[in-house]
Design a protein around this nucleic acid. Sequence first.
RNA 1: GAGAGUAUAGCUCAGUCGGUAGAGCACCUCCCUUUUAAGGAGGUUGUCCCGGGUCCGAGCCCCGGUGCUCUCACCA
Length: 512
Amino acid sequence: MTDDLHTHGDDLRDLRIAKLTELRAQGNDPFAVERYDRSHIATQIIDGNASHWTLPDEERTALVFSTAGRLTAHRSKGKAGFADLRDESGRVQIYVRKDDVGEAAYEIYKSLDLSDFVGVVGYPFMTHTGEPSLHVKEITLLAKSLRTVPFGKQDDEGNTYGALSDVEERYRLRYLDLLSNPQARDVLTKRSKVVSSMRRFLDGQGFLEVETPTLQLVAGGAAARPFLTHHNALDHDFKLRISLELYLKRLIIGGYEKVYEIGRVYRNEGVSTRHNPEFTLMELYQAYTDLDGIMELVEAMYESICRDVNGVPSFVDATTQETIDFSQRPWRRLPMLEGIRQYAGIAPEELTTLEAGKAACERIGVKFSLEREKTLGGLIEKLHEVYTQPNLIQPTFITDFPTETSPLAKKRQDNSALTRRFEVYVAAQELGNAFSEINDPIDQRERFEGQMAQREDGDEEAHPMDEDFIRAMEYGMPPTGGLGIGMDRLAMILTGATSIRDVILFPLMRPE
RNA sequence: GAGAGUAUAGCUCAGUCGGUAGAGCACCUCCCUUUUAAGGAGGUUGUCCCGGGUCCGAGCCCCGGUGCUCUCACCA
């Protein structure tokens, strides 16, 4: 570490360390500063409608404003100079004259480096070129930076030069990305608002937010390989959760009637523009309702979130340029097999056995490999994904998923091959998965056993048996509707992000 | 996991035919008291991703590796 402080060739940093040492020698240790009270933030000072701009000169120059921020530019002109200070709200220009601040303070001003934190006291004034600024009377170094943040520069047309653009650096050094790229910051801020808006909506609907274990003995509720970990004191292996489902249902069994959790889940899978191994899931469960009730909830929730985040209940999809309107209710409902009939040209009657299904696939010349498909349900879902999904631009509920791929959803009374389940699609992306939950412990056990058979058949992601969960269900579970939404995917759609990494502050990266 | 692309100064990027590395910004010195991609004069900078190889000589060619990006696969 000490060696690292004097890395050969890092001149800029060495110079700043030397400056810091000098400041400390003079008794002006910037890191000794603990607090700086601001009367104004940047945008309040430069606000054109603010009352201070209408005051007579003598009153305005008597004002004592204080503000603080990061030095992002300086344009010094000998015995006076301009500099830009940036805080969370925006940028304010400051003007420092040797005459006004005195020799010592002017020396401090001159010694400031880009990225330093600075506090200033002064009065608001308008420059000859019409830029609202702060005329500085006192200046204080609040914290020294040893490295320059690549803020970039902007010309009159708004073109930016020198901003951090290396994609890897933007993800690894996200704090620099946030400072350097306003768009990146906007997207990530919006993501945060999507989450808080959903929370607000659900709270308003009377749902109780809960937290359930991330360390689990059986990682269930979804089809995915888990991360493994170990508890030392118990000397026992645990898995990181892959979904929220089974513990939330235990709470429904326990008497809560409307619960939800927004939490991180972990799936030991590859990384891509749509997959990060840890991501945020929202799941909710509501007693005494079914998937039709959940559909209405989803319609209202997405409209509410979109309105919160965009101001209107619609947005323009980044890839198709189509305007997607959540307020056009009810949204389209389309049974999965009907969708396949419509978009793939295979009738439901042809999808009654795996063999017949594969024959139909060969007839139409499907563009995916049939060898991997081991169950009829899997084949049906594949047809849906390849042929139907790309056409689902406006909000659409796809219903009646195959029982084989839905081990936690109630079967249809009139057709046990299909379940009371839906997925909602927006802009051709899945944005929610819901069903009338199984509450029959006998049925649930049989489904798990079916999954175990698939697991023994080599499907590592088939659902594991969960005896503890079945025991809970045997005590009695009310009819319940449940919903799961990938928050990152939702944020992607609403922000127009093309990579999931753009909506995750610190995406998983290989070690440097 | 496969293919393609990419890696050069603190940041953004050039680098021709293989001849010993450059620009803008940043930084340093000087001038400049309403500038704004401030300006003017001068100056500094590097593990050319890593390891081998070919060659008198490699940022460049060859082999191997690594990170990242994209596409595909995987992933309800």
